[in-house]
Amino acid sequence: MKCTVKTFGITRDITGAREVELEVAEGATVHEFKQALFKQYPRLASLTSLFIAVNHAYADDGQVLAAGDEIALIPPVAGG
């Protein structure tokens, strides 16, 4: 299944795009998604932290992704 992934902050600099596409197996978990992501963009693994947001909420590693989910990369936040 093809995921369209939004990037923000340093993840946009690393990937060089506001959105990237990533191929994962049907029924893949967030953990599996991250493995595929790090394979495609090894520099993302060096960040202090990297959370995955699914449909505007932080997702656990075990969450299963579905086609049509809005997926985003959340590097360390620094609001305020």
Partner: peptide, 14 residues
């Protein structure tokens, strides 16, 4: 609210 916002809100600064 400000402590949690800094911890959780997806906002970034360069």
């Amino acid at each position: 609210i400000i402590d949690k916002l800094k911890e959780k809100a997806p906002i970034w600064k360069k």
